[in-house]
């Protein structure tokens, strides 16, 4: 549905997005990750046709966004960053306007407004002026606008920003549900969101893709992925350490904490693997040695750790607004 080819954007001498290429099919939810100023919003603005790329192509549903923008834009629902909306209008007025500009009329328009009002829980504020609403409601009003024409492609720039935990949960469920039938791209800073919603995640840093894969694949690349934590009682740390030297899959181990009654040890695997082999071997060892194991578990690896390891901690490249 969405095809991006060698997309590039320069703002003066600064390259905001550099040679970005990827595809998103129907039924996929692609999470866009990246530090501030990495080029996420700029990329989304180019995909939705708001700003023209310096170079490269965007196809939406087969339509070229530059050559043939109107049919391409018709397929897209877009929630811009900070969820802008016309403050002087009521929620109902705003949604009706958006439906009308999307070509809906009469009964269809009423049905569409009713549908999104229900989906985004806006019944209570339907006839309130948007500038009197709380941030959460304003955000959901703009989200409602993006799905009013039941688009095949959804581009959401930080859709859960500024929502409370319950609302975040609702919106995630909504995205996940819609992701079964649509092609969705959404950006976020919340890494747990990626795990909860995305079928694929892409990390962008300084305008380039630095990682691309399913959330599980990315997690497996984290430093701590596959590390086994072992808590044993009644044995001295040094004894355990010595015995652990015999474990084939272990690269090294370290005592994290030693108390009188128990010892906490972390064992690093030889190859980066989370298939449980290391844990099996340790478990066998513990059975042979008759240790009183309190806890034994393999770290899955964490997305935020991986994120930090591949995106450079540089705050100089702030996004130009």
């Amino acid at each position: 549905m969405i095809k991006v080819q060698k997309l590039r954007k320069e703002f003066g001498p600064k390259v905001a997005v550099n040679s970005l290429s990827f595809e998103v099919e129907r039924g996929e939810v692609l999470g866009f990750l990246g530090p501030n100023g990495a080029g996420k919003s700029t990329s989304m603005r180019m995909i939705t046709g708001f700003i023209p790329p310096t170079d490269g192509k965007v196809f939406v549903g087969g339509f070229d966004m530059i050559e043939n923008p109107i049919p391409a834009k018709r397929l897209i629902g877009y929630l811009p960053e900070n969820a802008p909306s016309y403050n002087d209008m009521t929620v109902h007025g705003f949604l009706s306007f958006c439906a009308e500009i999307r070509g809906l009329r009469g009964e269809d328009l009423k049905k569409a407004v009713h549908r999104v009002v229900e989906m985004c829980f806006l019944e209570n504020v339907l006839y309130q002026s948007i500038d009197t609403l709380s941030k959460g409601y304003r955000h959901r009003t703009c989200l409602a606008q993006s799905i009013i024409h039941d688009p095949e492609v959804l581009i959401l720039d930080e859709p859960t920003d500024g929502l409370d935990p319950n609302q975040k949960h609702e919106v995630r469920q909504l995205i996940k549900r819609m992701g079964e039938k649509k092609a969705i791209i959404f950006s976020t800073h919340i890494l747990e969101e990626v795990e909860a919603v995305c079928s694929r995640a892409m990390i962008i840093d300084r305008g380039e893709i630095v990682a691309n894969g399913t959330p599980d694949e990315l997690k497996a690349k984290a430093d701590r992925a596959g590390v086994v934590t072992l808590i044993v009682g009644g044995v001295a740390g040094s004894v355990v350490m010595e015995k652990l030297g015999q474990v084939a899959a272990a690269r090294k181990s370290a005592v994290v904490k030693e108390e009188s009654s128990r010892v906490v040890i972390r064992i690093y695997p030889k190859t980066q693997c989370i298939n449980g082999e290391l844990a099996h071997q340790i478990s066998d060892l513990a059975t042979r040695e008759k240790w009183r194991v309190e806890e034994l578990h393999t770290e899955e690896g964490r997305l935020d750790e991986f994120f930090r390891s591949i995106t450079l901690p540089d705050t100089k490249s702030e996004e130009t607004k």
Binding site: I70, K73, I76, P84, S85, C98, I101, R102
Partner: peptide
């Protein structure tokens, strides 16, 4: 100022 221009110009209108 409101950022609604981004909404307006990504709608299917010229």
């Amino acid at each position: 100022r409101l950022g609604t221009i981004e909404l307006l110009l990504t709608m299917p209108i010229t």
